[in-house]
Design a binder for these strands. Structure first.
Lengths: 193, 193
DNA sequence: TATAACTGTTGACATTTATCAACAGTTTTT
DNA sequence: AAAAACTGTTGATAAATGTCAACAGTTATA
């Protein structure tokens, strides 16, 4: 259960974890299985856990007045998922996070994470690296959202995340891109000509 | 020149800076004045400095094939500005950053920043806090961009950043929101009814 | 296996937003 | 003081995207 996470940490740090650190990591992370459609977090709740995805696929979304989902993040194996705003600020989340596929997660609380960050340098290093990458990905997406047409946004997405194209249906990807499923269908038709 | 930054650091850290740390900070940050329209960074260059704004207003934007600006960030006194992707990865930036008003900046290189982060705990603390806030602001903006109409995005912006409404003209704010100046003008007319 | 749910496409039409051009008032520059 | 640049508005029209409904093929479920 922990192999993938330990591998992930070692690949993102300059020095491998010691045996003792491996134990610290294992004891801080709680295994949890979710069936498709089960929630990791529901709107209005405080996000008590961040999760590393060992297996499966998750989505994070808000729901508007009309009851329409707006997907802010998609994530699969080897990604972390959680609502950072709620997790850090302890405020009720505006997002839902649920399993799109049956998934295996490793959960960590804020307290345990802070503890790990201070005790295990490799974890702090990994977290910094993740933060950088995350920031860069968000900035690109933000720039795309104000600068590019639906067609270009879709093309960029398909290039950047080929795995996601296999794992999520079009209406999910459309929502992530901020367009309707019908518009995405037409954009694809246009491109294929 | 350094007072505002030192105040900013102390307000964002649990312990005030020691005299020695104040000297470290001062020696790492290079004062620089920019006249309106002068560049801090131009597309294609690597972002060598991050800047703390002591006075003035800056904008960061990409330019598309048609020559149209798309503003990704606006910033004023007490904010940091720079292209983090380029600054960290040392890649050519896709953004321009220029002064919207005559400005006074304090510049720091990547090497000096890393040095400060490791030597001055208050700086590391401040950086973490800034990162969190930044992340939260970006996530909200991202969610808004895929979920809300131009009208709601404008309303949220006006509420969140009243200062910016005073400092930047409408066509700049329109660009930041991902709409044209004409659409913003019409949205405002609509709201005022 | 029958039924329901999910996924993707298409057509007709509505709404939102962009584009282009013109104009007026203001501010900046010469 | 005159000219130029900037800012904001408006009208006419075009383009992009959304909405609603229908349909077919697939997949999941009772």
């Amino acid at each position: 259960m922990y192999e993938l996470l330990l591998k992930y940490i070692n690949e993102h740090a300059t020095k491998p974890l010691t045996d003792n650190e491996v134990e610290l990591v294992k004891s801080a992370l709680l295994p949890k299985k979710l069936r498709k459609k089960q929630y990791l977090l529901q709107e209005g709740d405080v996000c008590k856990y961040f999760a590393f995805i060992v297996k499966g696929a998750m989505r994070q979304y808000s729901v508007d007045d009309k009851g329409i989902d707006h997907i802010v993040y998609l994530s699969i194996e080897n990604w972390w998922v959680g609502d950072r705003e709620s997790f850090v600020m302890l405020t009720p989340s505006v997002y839902n996070i649920d399993a799109w596929e049956d998934s295996e997660l490793l959960l960590i609380t804020r307290a345990d994470l802070l503890n790990l960050l201070s005790q295990v340098p490799a974890i702090a290093e990994m977290a910094r690296l993740m933060d950088e990458r995350n920031f860069i990905a968000m900035q690109r997406r933000l720039n795309a959202s104000i600068s590019f047409s639906a067609e270009k946004r879709y093309g960029d997405f398909a290039n950047s995340y080929p795995d996601f194209m296999q794992r999520f249906p079009q209406h999910i990807i459309a929502s992530y891109l901020g367009i309707t499923k019908e518009t995405l269908s037409r954009v694809r038709k246009q491109i294929s000509k």
